[in-house]
């Protein structure tokens, strides 16, 4: 499985709307398309954890808590900023809306300039063929000094690889995270095998 280069990325982007294109929109500057990747920007929606309200998050169901109860949505206007303190996890998202064709998958990777400051942008980094939506970023600061992040900055890159042969049932309507337009709350509790664990725990 080979990494898709700039020429091929642009070919995918230029495909007609009915020809299963790659869509990354909006691309504000052509420079965002690199040799083997597309830089993506930080969106302005975030999910922060209301840790003062709960001691533990247990999706298995001993003391069930809806994810919405411990997570809170925040919107930071463009021009504003969010401070990421050491050890803090915040869910952000890409500014760009992405639509993956059925024959490409991609990895969300941090930019080395940010990584050197201690920023991790994604731990669950695979984006499947057929996915549509903004990509949720798990932002955490593993350094010892706080980091200031501004919506709109280039924060990560998408590296594409061919899925051969194209997948038969691309990421579709039935999946957990469907056409998100902001960071998504965890839906761990919707996993098909979760019920088994939950009943065992009880």
């Amino acid at each position: 499985m080979s990494t898709v280069s700039q020429v091929a990325i642009e070919e995918y982007l230029k495909r007609g709307i009915d020809a299963d294109p790659l869509v990354v929109t909006p691309i504000l500057a052509p420079k965002q398309i690199g040799k083997v990747s597309i830089d993506v920007r930080l969106g302005n929606q975030f999910i922060v954890f209301r840790t003062h309200r709960f001691g533990i998050f247990e999706p298995a169901g001993i003391s069930p808590i809806e994810p919405q109860q411990i997570q809170e949505r925040q919107v930071i206007p463009f021009g504003g900023h969010v401070v990421l303190h050491p050890g803090m996890l915040v869910l952000g998202c890409t500014f760009e809306y992405v639509s993956m064709p059925s024959d490409l998958e991609c990895q969300v990777e941090g930019r080395s300039s940010w990584a050197r400051l201690g920023l991790q942008v994604a731990t669950a980094s695979a984006v499947e063929p057929g996915f549509k939506g903004v990509i949720t970023l798990e932002l955490s600061n593993v350094a010892t000094v706080p980091l200031t992040l501004m919506p709109g900055i280039r924060i990560a890159q998408l590296v594409f690889r061919k899925a051969e042969p194209p997948v038969k049932e691309p990421y579709g309507e039935s999946r957990k995270y469907r056409c998100p337009i902001g960071p998504e709350f965890s839906r761990l509790h919707e996993d098909y095998d979760w019920k088994v664990f939950a009943s065992e725990t009880k």
């Binding site: 982007l13 709307i17 869509v23 909006p26 809306y97 549509k132």
Partner: peptide
């Protein structure tokens, strides 16, 4: 797809 641009890429 968001209806934010026209004329393709």
């Amino acid at each position: 797809l968001p209806p934010n641009t026209v004329d393709g890429y």
